[in-house]
Write a protein that binds this DNA or RNA. Structure first.
Lengths: 149, 149
DNA sequence: ATGAATCGTAACTAATTAAGTTACATGAAG
DNA sequence: CTTCATGTAACTTAATTAGTTACGATTCAT
């Protein structure tokens, strides 16, 4: 798994889970989808479990299941559960007391708050079901073209 | 300079430059503002020069100047000139041929394109002049309270 | 001309972060 | 009670970014 691809890797995993409803997939299986190892998977999606997006069970026959239907899982929730910031820039003070820095931080923070809200709104309108629908469309297309050619 | 603070550090520098109009500031001076060293400054703002936001001159009496008035320098341009992506997540394929991945990337890229446009629009409405105005407000407030107390 | 000041940039080092790995405890199913 | 899973801590490795050193190129003052 490359850097900065936790969101796409997680979505990849979730679509696979959505395609096998009711069937628990192990960290091992999920890991092969995103070319990494089981511990990285557990670590990455641990937050999704806490958010109720997935459930995990141990022992024989255990593994991971979606906690809700794909229609009820939005990318906003997934992104939030991963715990990564939506915007990459930091505004932590480095020169406390510098009025220029304070002004810069104030303006950037205002922007950031508004921007994060905008992005979260947009993400909340995309669900896991949308992703699986897109996948199915591609899948069917391949099938058609394979038969046609 | 901390990680992920290139934007705020650059704004910090630019506000200082805006406060000394017509006066060339050296990389050395700019570096002290953001607690780093001159080479890091040159490297960081090199893109701003290419974008015409600042100019630099060498030799005795040389240094950095704003290339335009603060009213005509938007945060969108500054951010673009820094060459950093507005959104942190990557959508580079890791399993070419995997339809699930393709679906995920397609959806995320759509989102990313729309989101970047939104953010750029918001940033284009904030100018360096807005930052200096915010700074002046804080500066005047301190002056007032100092005199009052 | 010469020297001092300044940027431009390459090359290297150090610090930080994130992913990958190993190891083992915990719990569930047969 | 053995096997198959997750949970998690600890460590290692890899990648990225900031910091540093060094030096060439350019400009100004004398």
């Amino acid at each position: 798994m490359k850097r900065n691809s936790r969101l796409s890797a997680t979505l990849h995993i979730l679509v696979h889970m959505a395609e096998k409803p009711g069937q628990a997939l192990t960290s091992e299986q999920l890991a092969t989808f995103i070319h990494t190892n089981p511990v990285v998977v557990r670590r990455t999606i641990a937050g999704l479990r806490d958010a109720g997006i997935v459930t995990s069970s141990r022992g024989h026959g255990g593994g991971w299941l979606l906690g809700r239907t794909p229609e009820n899982i939005s990318l906003a929730e997934i992104s939030a559960a991963l715990g990564e910031p939506l915007l990459p820039f930091s505004t932590e003070p480095e020169s406390p007391g510098c009025l220029v820095e304070q002004a810069v931080i104030a303006v950037l923070d205002d922007f950031r708050i508004a921007a994060e809200k905008l992005l979260a709104d947009k993400l909340s309108r995309i669900t896991l079901a949308d992703l699986t629908a897109d996948f199915r469309r591609r899948y069917d297309l391949i099938g058609v073209s394979t038969h046609a050619v």
